[in-house]
């Protein structure tokens, strides 16, 4: 566990598309986040499930929160802005629904300049929800 830091210090996104509640673990190479799917979630579908793109955004914002945490530890006050450059090998195993709590872990595969490649995996309890590789570019 890491000390609690307001997520708004770690990611630049604001409502209605803040897709991480908190960063719960982090080290140099990996980080874990949590998100409860509430009924006002921007990516909620009519059937009460979170749309796949909501999952991808949540995974990307976990990577962003990780970058924000590393920057925060170095005294940077403003969360860095990152953009998704590529989604590769996304696999959906189940669609989570309203009320579910997502737990997502990102692992850095490669870091070069302002580009980071991560593997991301999302679970609800012990069930695998989705996994993917993401390329994220941080704004210079």
């Amino acid at each position: 566990m890491i000390d609690y830091i307001d997520i708004r210090q770690l990611i630049p996104q604001r409502q209605p598309i803040m897709m991480v509640d908190a960063l719960v673990e982090a080290d140099e190479q990996s980080a874990t986040s949590r998100l409860i799917i509430r009924d006002n979630n921007f990516f909620l579908q009519e059937d009460g499930c979170l749309g796949e793109v909501g999952l991808i955004e949540h995974m990307a914002q976990t990577a962003s929160a990780h970058a924000g945490y590393m920057a925060f530890k170095q005294g940077v006050q403003e969360a860095p802005i990152g953009y998704i450059g590529e989604v590769k090998g996304f696999c959906l195993y189940m669609l989570p629904k309203k009320g579910d709590e997502l737990t997502t872990t990102v692992q850095i595969v490669l870091q070069a300049g302002n580009v980071t490649v991560v593997n991301a995996m999302t679970k609800v309890d012990d069930s695998l929800v989705a996994e993917t590789q993401l390329k994220i570019s941080l704004k210079e």
Partner: peptide, 13 residues
């Protein structure tokens, strides 16, 4: 009426 994205082989922005 509904579709789900099962796999993304690759999506480049």
């Amino acid at each position: 009426k509904s579709l789900s994205i099962r796999k993304v082989k690759r999506c480049r922005f």
